[in-house]
Simulated assay, not measured.
Amino acid sequence: MTNDTSKINNTSTTNKARPWIQTGRYEFETVCRSTLCPKEWLQVEKIYVCEYCLKTTIQATSARRHRTKCTQTRPPGCLIYTQKDVNIFEVCGWKTKTYCEDLCLLATLFIESKVEIKNVHRFRFYVLTVCHNDNQYEFAGFFSKLQFQERLNLSCLLILPPYRNRGFGSLMVHISYALSRLANIHTGTPERPLSTQGLLCYRKYWKSKIFDYLLTKTNDEQIAINDISKATSISTCDIIETLASLNMIRMLEKDKLIIYRSQELLDEYEQKSKETDIRQEIVNYDSKCLTIKPIPIPLPFENKCKKIKFDDNETVMTFLNYYPSSSTDDID
């Protein structure tokens, strides 16, 4: 590891001072002041976090002392995904309570809601690390999901600021859907409410999967909304929400929705995808790198949509007899 410290500034969301975090070679500002974290964290300028075991201290001398004694070099779980220097470990909350509580405490400084601290035994955690030549796995982020709730494929997602803009957020979302498919759950959805950053990350993922599917179809093909959902593993309500955010959907009658097939948006997406593929620092999901075994928990989703088809006269798709419902309808 290098001795240089990289500072990453985040946009301020409150007038009150927020502590900075130093972990390994990185130093960066936190996002929010949570009442769930220890009070002393909000009374200091800097918090020191071990990049391997996540032990936290507010004193530099204690951090240096811990660094010389810490023998942990990786998360306390099973390695389920390896791609170049990127590794993801599955950690059970009921097995390693202290480590998982430290994960959640760290998340309180970046996520204002949906962070469980006392009930970590109910969750599984998927910890993202970046490995160096000396086989030391630096903590870069994580996502959590409820045990035995495979349809809710993600509860909380955090990527530390130094590791953003490398595709790690999309990678973790890919992993969450892949785990649901391995558990025989063909469609999944994240737990609500989503944070602002979480919503942006998911909409980017949903858009890419939906557009990839639409680009394989011609204007005269008949398509079912459930076909899109089956091909992408995205729930029907999330598909509707994504298209609505892109202004590609209209309500014509009480029982009919029209989706405008915008060739301009599709062409723009294709061009950006090619540019992203060229960037070597971007990590794209590779199913061959996932080594976890399937977990047979059959919880089928109820199909709520009927056929859609392309209009012969216009480049649009028509939803027939589909009534948008609240986001909780898909997960009850």
Rank of each mutant, 00 (worst) to 15 (best):
V49I: 07
K306N: 12
T56L: 05
I278P: 00
G188V: 11
I308N: 09
G77H: 00
N284E: 10
F143D: 03
Y81G: 08
Y322S: 07
R261W: 07
Y213H: 07
N226I: 09
K293P: 04
I258N: 00
C32D: 10
E268T: 04
E29D: 13
E270R: 14
V173C: 03
Q136M: 12
L157S: 02
D330W: 01
E314V: 03
Y205R: 07
R33G: 12
T189Q: 15
L158R: 01
H66E: 01
G24P: 07
L214M: 11
I8N: 05
I331P: 05
S195K: 05
C78N: 12
W41K: 10
M248D: 07
I295A: 10
I185N: 04
I297V: 08
T108Q: 10
T5L: 13
P190Q: 07
K306Y: 07
K114F: 03
N247W: 02
Y202K: 08
C305V: 13
V115K: 06
F168M: 09
Y260K: 01
N165A: 12
L146E: 14
A140C: 05
F28T: 04
N313P: 00
T68G: 02
D255W: 11
I225V: 13
E253N: 13
T61K: 12
C131S: 14
K207D: 02
L42T: 01
Q22N: 14
I88L: 01
N321D: 15
L105D: 01
R65H: 04
A63E: 03
K16V: 08
S287A: 11
I234D: 01
I259D: 07
R181H: 06
T218Q: 15
C156G: 01
E45I: 05
L257F: 10
S327V: 13
R261K: 05
C50W: 00
